[in-house]
Structures are given as structure tokens and as C-alpha cells.
């Protein structure tokens, strides 16, 4: 980019891109490009830049840190425990909110003559959620 300072409005740019990226031009079109880049410096530089960008992209890679199967099974076990804890907290919170909502609903129910907010809370709406069995842990793995 830096080496091409003037704007390039050559009509051949698109064809050069088609050729380099798609590679499905006709023989005639390929010859047209070859003849053109001999006389057009901008397109010549551009084609070189495009090829360099593609090579850079191909070669640029990220290598993850080394690990063994024992490492990743341990990581996975820790992650599952964390998920389980988060899930338990979320579920208990949801259950508490639900219980609260139902209690308020009952307390404000006009069909229930002598109910007060306190009496409504006294009703047993608590859901017995034993923490670990709410969902199988694998529920969140894919």
C-alpha cells in the first residue's frame, strides 16, 4: 500500500484480483493481464503486493502453547466445576426470584380474603433444588 502513492483507477485491477484470488479466468484474460502488467507499472506493483499479502496470510500462523492430555483433562475438570458452581448460583437465584414473585402474587390476590404479604411469605413455595442435579453438567458442553 505504502509503495503505491497515487490512486489507481486502472480498469485491470479487478481482473488481476479475479485472477489471483479466484484463479478461474480464461486463457485469453490471463494473456491480457500478462500483456498489461508489462506496460502498467501500477498494476505490476499491485499484483506483486496482492501475491505478497496472500503469502503472508498463508504463512502467518498462531501456535497454541504445548500441552498434554493430562493438562487439558485437568483444565476441563476445573472448568466444569466452575460452570457447575455458576449454574447452581444462577438456579438458586432464579428459584428465589420465582418464589418471591409467587409470594407477592398470592399476597396481592384479592380472592384470598385475609392474606397479608407476611402470610403469603409463610406459605411453603420453596423449591427443593438440590444443587448438583438441576442439570447434568454436560448440558452446557455443546
Amino acid at each position: 500500500m505504502k509503495e503505491l502513492n497515487k490512486p489507481n483507477i486502472c480498469q485491470m485491477t479487478e481482473l488481476i484480483l479475479q485472477d489471483t484470488i479466484s484463479g478461474n479466468l480464461s486463457k485469453e484474460q490471463q494473456i491480457e493481464i500478462q500483456e498489461h502488467i508489462i506496460i502498467c507499472e501500477t498494476c505490476r506493483l499491485q499484483q506483486a503486493k496482492l501475491k505478497a499479502d496472500i503469502d503472508n496470510w498463508r504463512e502467518s500462523s498462531y501456535q497454541t502453547k504445548a500441552f498434554t492430555i493430562a493438562d487439558i483433562l485437568e483444565n476441563s475438570r476445573k472448568k466444569k466445576l466452575r460452570t457447575k458452581r455458576q449454574l447452581t448460583t444462577a438456579t438458586l437465584f432464579a428459584a428465589a426470584s420465582l418464589g418471591f414473585g409467587i409470594a407477592i402474587g398470592v399476597a396481592l390476590d384479592p380472592s384470598k380474603p385475609s392474606a397479608t404479604v407476611y402470610e403469603a411469605f409463610a406459605d411453603d413455595y420453596s423449591l427443593s433444588l438440590s444443587s448438583d442435579e438441576v442439570f447434568p453438567v454436560d448440558f452446557f458442553n455443546e
Binding site: 503505491l4 490512486p7 489507481n8 488481476i16
Partner: peptide, 18 residues
Amino acid sequence: FRAKQRLVKELLPYYQNK
């Protein structure tokens, strides 16, 4: 095919120095 066409379309302004 569609990936290549889209790339050509997206890259054209860049290689035209726009």
C-alpha cells in the same frame, strides 16, 4: 466460489488505494 467473489469485491477498493 462465493467466498472468492466476496473477497474480490471487498478487496477491490483497497488495491485501488481507496
